[in-house]
Design a protein around this nucleic acid. Structure first.
Length: 567
RNA sequence: CGGGAUGUGGCGCAGUUUGGCAGCGCGCUGCGUUCGGGACGCAGAGGUCGGGGGUUCAAAUCCCCCCAUCCCGACCA
């Protein structure tokens, strides 16, 4: 293509709203434009990158035997009713009605629709199946942000596996794990597979592929020594045991005037260090007032509470709900003698001589033996790991890294197949519900993640595999007829060799063309200009900005060589 | 949903405090000069000042209501 004919509306100044590097540069480089919050138009340049990413994803899932479909994005609400997810997804789903009044939803994912198609599977001999599509998904995000990183309408590759049993699911899952590693490698994304929560989707064996980046929204706990890595919603650490004295035979009530915080209780005469306190969080879990207990120096992770209880929603109780259920205000709360549902963190198990609120303002208990004095309903992992704590595997310090979630694979189980009535006969002639896995990669998010990890102050530096054009031939001056002729010849030779090449034939100053090529991020630039007097052109590598003079006669072969090696 | 900020030409902004011709830079069009790192001169085009209501002789500016966008938090397969 000739740059003079392309629609590449680059901006010299960044739109004021773009904070994340990928947001800023994709706008400035003329890859996309916002239509409104969370909805972006892909311009020709953006479309090319998007398609290249999708093609890589497609090739790798095809390689593991997946079959491509294209499903509707608009679904009857009744289908989501049937799986029970209409309520679970709640406000996250866009809903509409047709002229007849039939309720419709815009697809958030496609488990239901694929499971419906799976009704036509009837024998174990047809399994396993891996089905996928690359298509638009809709989510009514409360807060779209950071350009393509968090949007309300986006293309995603979602695949689903159907197997007869767990062993089959493990195999399908492992196939995807391998495919994802290859995909992110080809995309030049340094994605780390981490243990994750499977969230509202249900299921187990959840692995997220995380790309370290400040623009991300997830925290990953990673060991500096061994390979341990987990989402903070899931991560654990090994903590030193604490020696308790036995304490009194029963809790001792004592006055704590104006003490409302862990710190205040630590500092108070007769108080207790934070790790000898029980922090009592009053939460409303799916409508039920529930106490979540963690050690005084620990933080509650709400997702862990959700995972432990299997609940859909958990929120801190309102002040009036707290007073109503416990009779005191935050700062004096405790679980001693309380009959509510009580979920406690493992670190409290067996602890004695602890201090906690007495459910009366300005009073606390000391000498609390957790298992003797508190009717814990469930013991589980609730606390959030902090940086520097010892790795659960090797004891070396953990670090917390901000990441973009680029992919997520997990074992779904039989929930959807069962809800929709999918079944096959096994070798014994018995009816079995197939077991599903679910695997997603957001295409636009991957595109943004690549920019986040491949840019500098001048613009984007695309990896060859996803670059909108692999090479640009920059004609320094359109008045230089010899230069124009040489560039035209190279252009047609590179095109014949199958290179995605763009000829910058605009009647603009060289500086403008250089700046645009660097902003847009084309990996190789061939400059035809003053070196032509010596029978040479310059080849500049965008990522390193290294320039080399190459004889005109050699440049095509040279460039074809380096580019094909990197595809 | 809570907190903060912002809405003025395609983009970036000033003007709002103290009401009085709607401006600047970039970009865009034409002509000329220039031509390897976002040139220069001259001449132009382009704006319901987010929307509605109110106050006033007069509103981008003051008052009321609404909307939108961005940031932080909550939330988020």
């Amino acid at each position: 293509m000739r740059w003079s004919k392309l629609f590449i509306p680059t901006l010299r100044e960044a739109p004021a709203d773009a904070e994340a590097a990928s947001h800023n540069l994709l706008l400035r480089g003329g890859f996309m434009r916002q239509l409104y919050a969370g909805h972006y138009s892909m311009l020709p340049l953006g479309m090319r990158v998007h398609e290249k990413i999708a093609d890589i994803v497609r090739a790798e899932v095809d390689h593991i035997g997946a079959q491509e479909f294209q499903l509707p994005t608009m679904h009857p609400a009744a289908l989501w009713q049937q799986s029970g997810r209409l309520e679970i997804m709640g406000d996250e789903m866009f809903r509409l009605a047709d002229r007849k009044g039939t309720e419709l939803v815009l697809g958030v994912t496609e488990e239901e629709v694929f499971a419906t198609l799976a009704l036509e599977l009837n024998s174990y001999k047809q399994l396993p199946q891996i089905w996928y599509q690359i298509h638009t998904k809709f989510r009514d995000e409360p807060r779209p942000k950071s350009g393509l990183l968090r949007v309300r309408e986006f293309a995603m590759k979602d695949s689903y596996s159907f197997d007869l049993d767990e062993a089959g699911l493990d195999a399908s899952f492992d196939l995807h794990h391998g495919a994802y590693v290859r995909i992110f490698d080809r995309l030049s994304l340094p994605a780390v597979p981490v243990e994750a929560s499977s969230g509202a989707m249900g299921g187990s064996g959840s692995v997220e592929f995380m790309v370290p980046s400040d623009a991300g929204e997830d925290d990953v706990v990673r060991c500096t020594g061994c390979g341990y890595a987990a989402n903070i919603e899931r991560a654990t650490s090994r903590l030193a045991d604490i020696e308790d004295d036995a304490g009194p035979d029963s809790p001792e009530r004592f006055a704590t005037p104006d003490v409302r915080t862990i710190v205040a209780l630590e500092e108070m005469q007769g108080g207790a260090p934070a790790d000898r306190q029980i922090k009592t969080m009053v939460m409303v879990v799916d409508g039920e007032v529930t106490l979540a207990l963690v050690r005084g120096d620990h933080q509650l992770n709400v997702q862990k509470l959700l995972d432990a209880t299997g609940a859909i929603e958990a929120r801190p109780a309102l002040p009036e709900e707290t007073v109503e259920s416990l009779g005191a205000n935050p700062g004096s709360l405790g679980a001693v003698g309380v009959a509510l549902r009580i979920v406690a963190d493992h670190t409290l198990a067996g602890r004695t001589s602890m201090t906690t609120g007495a459910n009366e303002d300005d009073w606390h208990y000391r000498g609390v033996s957790v298992e003797r004095d508190i009717a814990v309903t469930e013991w589980t992992d609730l606390r959030e790991v902090s940086a520097g704590e010892p790795c659960p595997n090797c004891d070396r310090p953990l670090e917390i890294v901000r990441c973009i979630e680029a992919g997520h694979i997990f074992k779904l189980g039989r929930k959807y197949a069962e809800a929709l009535g999918a079944a096959v006969l096994d070798p014994n002639g018995k009816t079995q519900t197939p077991i599903m896995g679910s695997y997603g990669i957001g295409i636009g998010r991957a595109m943004a993640a690549i920019v986040e990890t491949h840019h500098d102050e001048r613009g984007i530096a695309w990896p060859v595999a996803v670059a909108p054009y692999e090479a640009v031939i920059t004609i320094a001056s359109m008045k230089d007829q010899a230069g124009v002729d040489a560039a035209e010849l190279m252009y047609s030779q590179l095109r014949s060799a199958g290179i995605d090449v763009v000829l910058d034939d605009r009647d603009a100053r060289a500086g403008v063309k250089f700046a645009d090529a660097e902003l847009v991020g084309i990996p190789y630039r061939i400059t035809v200009g003053k070196a032509l007097a010596d029978g040479e052109v310059e080849v500049t590598v965008r990522a390193t900005r290294e320039t080399e003079r190459v004889p005109v006669g050699d440049v095509v072969e040279r460039v074809v060589g380096v580019i094909t090696a990197q595809r």
